[in-house]
């Protein structure tokens, strides 16, 4: 049965428990980071951070607003990254039928920097990263080992606020819609980010642009799915040329 996350950012306090739990469970090394003028650190997702809490602040209608966005792979229902990868190397990116998890496998090692670039560009949420030392591609695994052994993903287990939720897709959608109705009472601009296309459903209190440039996919509306996929012809085209 397909699984989904529901990430209720209206509850997030940016404690970064999820960011660190992810590192701990996946035994990812700490990056040597620098302060660059924000609490958001490391500054971006990387091969050692599958999960990153993004901090953004704005003055809206004269009031200071602070937005937190625990970013991660959306495990798209029809993952563009996989479509592109399949055309380069079958098996580099797989999708688990049962859970819907999109996985970067050890096969990604064989992909070149350019291949990786094409895959990264295909992702509407700018998620894929590459470990330059090993050549492996990296991103959230939906804690595949954990969920297939009956455990919640590490980020969900640790979250102290109820922001991170995980379970059957149907149940998560139901929860998401219930919360949306609730949050809309105070924040009429609240929305769910591409709920029909992804397994990681974010609830945003306000206009997505306040959260992160890739908080929602650019042309993701279900009706536009064809057009959306058509965009992927770009990388295919390039590939075809290279092969010929």
């Amino acid at each position: 049965m397909p699984k989904s996350f529901f990430i209720d950012t209206s509850k997030c306090t940016a404690c970064r428990g999820c960011q660190l739990a992810c590192k701990e469970w996946n035994a990812l090394d700490a990056n040597a980071t620098k302060q660059v003028g924000t609490h958001q650190n490391p500054p971006d997702l990387n091969a050692n951070n599958y999960k990153l809490v993004r901090f953004n602040e704005h003055v809206i209608d004269g009031k200071v607003r602070w937005f937190f966005f625990p970013d991660q792979c959306r495990h798209c229902l029809t993952p563009p990254c996989k479509i592109v990868a399949d055309s380069i190397k079958e098996g580099a990116i797989t999708q688990d039928e049962k859970t819907g998890a999109v996985l970067f496998t050890a096969e990604t090692k064989g992909l070149t920097k350019d291949d990786f670039q094409s895959i990264r560009e295909s992702c509407p949420y700018d998620i894929p990263r590459r470990n330059e030392a090993t050549g492996l591609m990296a991103k959230c695994t939906m804690c595949f080992e954990r969920i297939t052994n009956g455990m919640l993903p590490a980020c969900v287990k640790v979250c102290p606020t109820g922001t991170m939720n995980f379970g059957e897709r149907e149940a998560m959608l139901e929860l998401a819609n219930k919360r949306l109705a609730e949050v809309k009472k105070t924040f009429p601009r609240a929305s769910l980010a591409n709920p029909d296309d992804v397994s990681v459903i974010f609830l945003l209190q306000d206009d997505p642009k306040y959260y992160h440039s890739s908080a929602v996919a650019e042309a993701p509306a279900p009706l536009d799915r064809k057009a959306f996929l058509a965009k992927l012809v770009g990388p295919f085209g390039r590939l075809a040329r290279e092969l010929s």
Partner: peptide, 12 residues
């Protein structure tokens, strides 16, 4: 604790 230092690395 390396992971905490990663999240808040320097004086601001």
């Amino acid at each position: 604790v390396p992971n905490l230092l990663e999240a808040e690395p320097q004086l601001y």
